[in-house]
Design a protein around this nucleic acid. Structure first.
Lengths: 259, 259
DNA sequence: TATCATTTGTTCGTATGTATC
DNA sequence: CGATACATACGAACAAATGAT
């Protein structure tokens, strides 16, 4: 048993003690922590203090708490899904990763009309409140059970120019890219990766446990005119997925002067 | 004033009410929320309930709480730093981003001996407890104040083979790559992006506010023998930084058969 | 099926400490 | 220094989920 003498708030001392106990191996990954009552005994503190300490460890992502069962040391397993971000291969139009994994669609996608926001507008090089065609999908990796939210946003102007696109805005990305290519565009992509804490509805949709950030991937496809044609977004729990980029040491491309 | 009648825990109803008030614009970004005492008044609940609700919004990253001052709506500003992950250009050996930004080293780096772990071992295609040379740096972007933790890990075997590397394992990455190239290696990179909640020491080192995940970038450099030569890691708060990858639609590379 | 003990979740009350202005 | 606001800590009670009897 670790003694509690260090400075700082009492609950933080308790949290530090439990943290060290975990890291030292007293509690192994997956194993249950002592119950609140036992922790009260062990550290001679009140229940609110113990709960505060447990909450701190939970926010750190070190433990997992389940109502009615107890607290468990989170096994910091490697992500079960690696999203390999090489050139997207268009096969039969399904959601296919380069490693062969296939995402299933959990629900039927329904296209909708929307507008650009502060976040999506700049990516599409549009102002705010510009008309968009959107389509959301909830994807599931059957192998690992990992869920992901996929979104396609097409500027209204772009969809207008291509009849097949305007008629079926809920096509899968691969099909959309094919349509764009057939329309004479030479495509190039650029992806932006961010991480943030999930909103309540994202938490439930992706079935995320505590202290799990979201990896938010935005892929903008440019066409021949160097204008953004379509924005593809993928949101996935960071505990289950990682992104892999292969940056081969090619010849240095022509360098555009920029600040 | 929003009424509280929906199902769920009381503090969650309060949290939802405040959340909607924020999203509806009643409390603008940067503006202070009502004090705890005022929220108690407003929603007719006890102090613990209010604190619980505030804690929930804090974990969501929606608000920022400062001791003695109050709670403030977090302005969901765009990241101030974009890490542009194109081919790394070696200039004078400083930490330079393609967009021209330069990171300053906040402290003098000190090389150390270490070992592979469950996380770093597989990336370097080594087992666990293999000898490594490490070097940590705390970087600061003077323009935005953004901090980042940089780490270089070189397998002992690799360092042994190149004298200049063994003598100065604390060289900057650009210099290390130069040494490897001079040693006859043709380099290629591969990066893996993950996100997770920070550990306590990472929180303080990066000066992260609440509910801020860390973007964890691992860059493995392979040499001619297709063997990992060096692992470079960058950890940065996800509220300040984002990663940008440019994936040009090249010819499809030769495809290795894999599961 | 029903009941019970265990464990965590929620909510109240109260008091005191500490940071900010 | 005082006023305000958040942080910490204790005590107590009941609710809800879980698993075993």
């Amino acid at each position: 048993m670790t003694e509690i003498q260090r400075p700082g708030a009492l609950y933080q001392q308790v949290a530090a003690a439990i943290r060290e106990a975990i890291l030292s191996g007293e509690f192994e990954p997956g194993a249950p922590l002592p119950s609140e009552a036992q922790l009260i005994e062990r550290y001679k503190v009140s229940r609110p203090t113990v709960r505060n300490a447990v909450a701190a460890l939970r926010a750190e992502g070190l433990i997992d708490v389940r109502h009615g069962k107890g607290s468990f040391v989170r096994s910091d397993g490697q992500p079960s899904v690696t999203l390999d971000r090489r050139v997207n291969r268009t096969s039969n139009g399904q959601f296919v990763l380069p490693n062969g994994a296939v995402w299933e669609e959990a629900e039927e996608p329904t296209p909708y009309r929307s507008h650009t926001t502060k976040a999506t507008g700049p990516l599409l090089e549009l102002g705010e409140e510009e008309a968009l065609l959107g389509c959301d999908r909830l994807l599931v990796d059957p192998a690992s059970g990992t869920r992901a939210m996929h979104r396609t946003l097409i500027p209204f102007e772009v969809a207008e120019g291509i009849q097949a696109l305007a008629e079926a805005p809920d096509s899968r990305p691969a099909a959309v890219y094919e349509l764009l290519t057939k329309a004479g565009h030479k495509l190039s992509w650029s992806e932006t990766v961010r991480a943030r804490m999930p909103l309540p509805d994202e938490r439930t949709a992706l079935q995320l446990s505590d202290a799990t950030p979201i990896l938010h991937l935005s892929r903008v496809t440019h066409g021949t005119a160097d204008r953004p044609l379509i924005l593809e977004e993928l949101r996935v729990g960071a505990d289950r997925a990682e992104l892999a980029y292969r940056i081969t040491a090619d010849k240095e491309p022509a360098r555009r002067t920029r600040s």
